[in-house]
Amino acid sequence: MADEGKDDKKKGGNKVIYAALAANLGIAVAKFVVAAITGSAAMLAEGIHSTVDTGNELLLMLGEKQAAKPADARHPFGYGKELYFWALMVALSVFSLGGGFSIYHGIQALRNPEPLEDPLWNYLVLAVSACFEGYSWNVSRKELNKKRKPGASLWQTMRASKDATVFTVFIEDSAALIGLAIAAIGITLGYIFDSPYFDPAASILIGVLLVGAAFTLGRETGNLLVGESMGQDAIRRVRGIFEDDAAVLCVDRLMSMQLGPEEVLLTAAVQFKRGMRIDEVETAIARLQKAVGAVFPTIRHIYFESGALRATMP
């Protein structure tokens, strides 16, 4: 059952990637064509943004493939964190290629603004792009909602998510939709006021937006990469399972580390009741592992500190 759940999560993550990849690839081509026709700096920035996002989905696909490799002697806990590494590479590409180049191009366009063109083509591509990006964003939103707790906002759910594929695409698509709105506003203001400066200013704002998205994504993936825990609420529930067991005298410390989207390592410093035989302690440990696994199937490794066994000695 645990493997079936893991496969379902993988299928959900793959669906998110494929939706984002198809949307960004088609949108990037359309934006570049219209940018060449109209000379819009904001549209060129959006084209760059979509191209970077397309490459990012390929990086996430690579991360998914690497993370699925079985454990071996060099990596006894598997390769789950490969996904977090490649998601961090995505954050760096959004920052440097997406945000950096958009800001640079916007500044260059401010210095040498292009003459205004008919914005019809820009509006058409922005509208089509919004439809594609909205679809991709909705796919990632639905995946996030599967883990959404009652009363939690979508932002809080994203922050708590351990699936880098889903929250990476969600952050990218959210930034893309906001960027489309900025591009549309810049083009419209330039047309209304007959000024060539609003469009490149929009390009700079899009770049700043991408830098912010990259910072958010880097923070989330960085925390997971260096060993983020499964969350305090989950730890409290695990502690309750331990404390409810008749063989446990007290629970000193529980520590967890996320090894991948669906794999957690847990170490437990507990004291079993004194006078218990070793076989009774072993039975209690097996019972606790089963109870924890029933509630949290993602906890695939549970290790008890040796002090728990010494404390049972009469």
Rank of each mutant, 00 (worst) to 15 (best):
K146I: 05
L126D: 04
L224Y: 00
A286I: 02
G186V: 08
K15G: 12
G231R: 01
V128Q: 06
M89T: 10
H301Y: 14
T188Q: 10
G39W: 06
S195G: 00
Y84Q: 08
V16I: 14
V128S: 07
A22H: 01
A91F: 06
M1F: 02
A291P: 05
M255G: 03
R287T: 11
R300F: 03
G78E: 09
A247M: 12
D245C: 12
D8M: 14
T216K: 09
A268F: 00
N223A: 06
G275E: 10
T38E: 03
A308T: 07
E172H: 05
K10A: 11
I192C: 10
T298I: 07
V128R: 03
R236H: 13
A286P: 06
T267G: 07
S229P: 12
R310Y: 11
A311R: 03
I302P: 01
S229R: 01
G307Q: 13
S161C: 09
A73P: 01
A22V: 14
N122D: 15
D163S: 01
L144A: 08
M89F: 12
Y123E: 05
I285S: 02
K10Q: 13
A184D: 00
S140N: 00
S161D: 14
L209M: 09
L288A: 01
D8Y: 15
H301M: 12
R219Y: 11
K9L: 15
L120K: 14
A73F: 13
M61L: 15
V34H: 01
L120R: 13
I206T: 00
I204C: 00
T283C: 03
G151A: 09
F296V: 04
L265F: 15
L209F: 02
Y79L: 10
A164E: 05
L60E: 05
I204N: 01
D53I: 09
L97G: 05
E305R: 10
D252T: 09
A286E: 15
I192H: 10
I192G: 09
R111I: 15
S174N: 08
L144T: 09
L224S: 00
A19T: 13
F193C: 09
D173S: 11
F296P: 00
N223L: 13
A286R: 13
P119R: 10
D53E: 15
S229A: 11
L97F: 06
P76Y: 04
Y197W: 14
G186A: 14
M257I: 13
L58I: 15
Y197P: 05
T267E: 06
I278N: 07
P115N: 11
K6D: 15
K31P: 06
K162C: 07
T267L: 10
I278E: 08
L21R: 01
I299E: 02
V166M: 11
E172F: 06
A152T: 07
F32G: 10
